[in-house]
Design a protein around this nucleic acid. Structure first.
Lengths: 328, 328
DNA sequence: CCGCACGATGACAACGATGTCCAGCACCAG
DNA sequence: CTGGTGCTGGACATCGTTGTCATCGTGCGG
């Protein structure tokens, strides 16, 4: 900046006035300054600026499980859009479902003085966030609630969705329904299992623990379970899968079976409509989750100090065929 | 920090020593300081620290077309991993293929003093980056080259891949092959078209401009073109699609046709193996692109000042069935 | 018993930018 | 000619942190 001032023959302060578009600068002087800026390729240091002005950093921290998962990348995009509308950018980090890594990432973001945090929490303990929140960094939890603190949260109706999946299958005559869910440590997995049980209860289907598998996540593991459910003594005629990745694995597993069970998956995914048969899913919108969270955060940044909110976004069952196969 | 110093009864400099783990602090003093830090929930301001130390910001800027596109989100993840290995984070921004937006994002990132930039460029003009690069911000272009400057670049073998697609189809007896590509403004689209022509030449197939469509990107538009190619006077028996999104649309379009043409898609995508028929693709690895770019960038950050490099990553044809349908 | 090295601590400036406040200057009305 | 007014431009402090250097005991070898 002082280089620019020297080249333009003015003081540093005048340069500052020009880059900040302050009105009280002679047009001619401003032109000289701009020319010098252009010539030297000067760009003001936003970090220093924010430090001096005490203004916010203009960065939102987004901590999620894995940006590469299409579900989260959709959410990321939605957050980015809303951040952009207020002139902010998004710093992303993947926790890989690892509590320590989540914590490390999050605190690092705080040290960078992000304006706010949006988190898909990996762990159950978030006490470490309390000082940050007290210091004024708003935090919004998405998809899963915080472990042991109260904070803004945006969830989807996991229970209702899983129950609806069972209801749908029951309406097509199924009574032996298997559930393949994510690891029980994960909030959404527990909730969806609970919804599954509720759905069974509503449909008058006795809950059979042999038809529940939580946690497998490899193609091999899931194939084995699907075979066991369908071909084993439990004789499942239908399956509910607990998330998009499990669904995909289940679809692959089913393709190799002599008798194909009906299937309803939790989470929508691209091409579900093009598979054979097209996969019926409990859909919910990653965009909507991201937008809701970002909007909540923005409200906090605008000064909303009301009590922490918990939103639950609706899901909808999208019948495409795979859930409508009747039992043999 | 001064609050911590006051509470611990030491000078501000001693606090600094403690948070920086400098050895020459009495254990007892350090303990007092740490207690005060804990008590006040102090976290040092990384921005101020970097300003004072003149050290790098520890942030990599990643400008791409759309984080929500699985192809780019995979790339993002790969970049994140390599950034993490050197203690850095990733600031992402979507340009939506808009040149101005790209420029705005990029310069904003520069003003934040990112350590380096990785860009999937939207436009053809990147002169605006010259001052930044001269100022020492390394820039790596990925997937598409820079418009009018020389810089590190990582590409995939678009020409070879598209030619291989034609060769594959020709080997199965096809002579009337249609090409649906992205808009011609996009580098990869042009390259792939060029590869398509080369492939035709190699196979002794006369190039028919009526069988080329560049730019349509809606389901309706693509469906119309596919119908025209296959059912119209040109009577295409096979199609090559220019990117993952077009492929998906083409698959949908084909599903509604009385006679299904063979298909090879450029870009692999999840579930391609589960469609009916499974889609043969020219695959290349988003991870590999991201890693290569990030590694190049890291080398620059480690002081590599050699001439700009251009890497071309190989592609491979993954036959799954859709390209092996013989012509009727 | 002196001086010296060494460990521990603090005062101060500086990173790059901006807010505050004041001085200079032209211009105009009185 | 004077004082006010409206612009401009500059000196200085400051944001939170760290590098440099100085200070101050204290223990130890000579």
């Amino acid at each position: 900046m002082s280089d620019v001032a020297r080249l333009a023959g003015v003081s540093i302060k005048t340069v500052s006035r020009v880059v900040n578009n302050e009105p009280s600068v002679h047009t001619e002087t401003a032109a000289k300054v701009l020319a010098a800026i252009e010539r030297l390729g000067f760009r003001r240091n936003l970090g220093a600026r924010n430090l001096r002005r005490g203004s916010s950093s203009g960065i939102i921290g987004l901590v999620l499980e894995d940006v590469a998962n299409p579900f989260y990348s959709g959410l990321t995009r939605a957050v980015e859009e809303i951040a952009r509308a207020t002139g902010r950018h998004v710093l992303t980090g993947s926790s890989d479902e690892d509590q320590d890594r989540e914590r490390e990432l999050t605190l690092e973001f705080c040290a960078r003085r992000v304006d706010g945090l949006i988190m898909i929490p990996a762990g159950e303990r978030h006490g470490y966030l309390v000082p940050e929140m007290q210091a004024g960094t708003p935090v919004v939890f998405v998809d899963r609630p915080a472990g042991d603190i109260v904070a803004d949260t945006v969830l989807v109706d996991n229970i209702g969705g899983a129950a609806a999946a069972v209801t749908h299958l029951a309406a097509h005559g199924h009574r032996k329904i298997g559930f393949l869910g994510d690891a029980e440590e994960i909030f959404t997995a527990r909730e969806r299992l609970r919804g599954f049980r509720e759905g069974c209860g509503n449909a008058g289907i006795p809950f059979d623990p042999r038809l529940v598998a939580m946690g497998p996540h490899t193609q091999e593991g899931i194939t084995a379970i699907v075979r066991e459910f369908v071909l084993g003594p439990t004789g499942a005629t239908a399956l509910v899968s607990g998330n998009n990745r499990i669904t995909v694995n289940v679809v692959r597993a089913i393709a190799g079976l002599p008798r194909r069970p009906a299937l309803v998956g939790f989470d929508d995914f691209e091409l579900a409509d093009l598979l054979d048969p097209p996969v019926t899913v409990v859909a919910h919108d990653a965009d909507a989750l991201g937008s809701a969270a970002a909007n909540l955060l923005m409200a906090r940044l605008d000064g909303d100090t009301s009590a922490p909110k918990r939103q639950t976004l609706p899901v909808r069952l999208v019948p495409r065929g795979s859930g409508e196969t009747p039992p043999p």
